[in-house]
């Protein structure tokens, strides 16, 4: 466990603290290498790629876009609702979201 946390501290983008989940979605759904994935997400967020791991920038952006924040805001989208917005924001297919939407619309 400590080993994984050490990697997260040393090299990780930061997940939903910043834009790590968004860049990860691009790697797994579009096979994008790290630089391309960062550029794609940064363009969608209208920020510089350097700012993707800046908590001060990403915190407000995530809150405004309703794509999930690391601290829990009552009534704010999280989980599948946040992922649904992420799929729309990044123009990607997230399989759990597709299933959720199909059940919601049924």
């Amino acid at each position: 466990m400590g080993m994984q946390i050490a990697h997260i501290m040393a090299s990780c983008m930061g997940g939903i603290r910043t834009a790590g989940d968004l860049v990860a979605w691009m790697q797994i759904t579009r096979r994008m290498k790290i630089r391309e994935a960062k550029a794609y997400v940064a363009k969608k967020l209208a920020i510089d790629p350097f700012e993707l791991t800046d908590e001060e920038i990403m915190r407000e952006l995530r809150k405004d876009l309703g794509i999930g924040t690391v601290t829990s805001i009552a009534g704010s989208p999280k989980g599948i609702l946040a992922k649904s917005r992420v799929a729309r924001l990044l123009d990607i297919n997230i399989r759990s979201v597709a299933l959720f939407r199909s059940q919601l619309d049924a």
């Binding site: 994984q4 990697h7 090299s11 990780c12 983008m13 990860a24 790697q27 790290i34 350097f50 791991t53």
Partner: peptide, 15 residues
């Protein structure tokens, strides 16, 4: 004791 990548060089950590 510990080191890290420079800001902007972060990557995705899967598990």
């Amino acid at each position: 004791r510990i080191v890290s990548v420079k800001p902007g060089n972060e990557v995705i950590v899967t598990d």
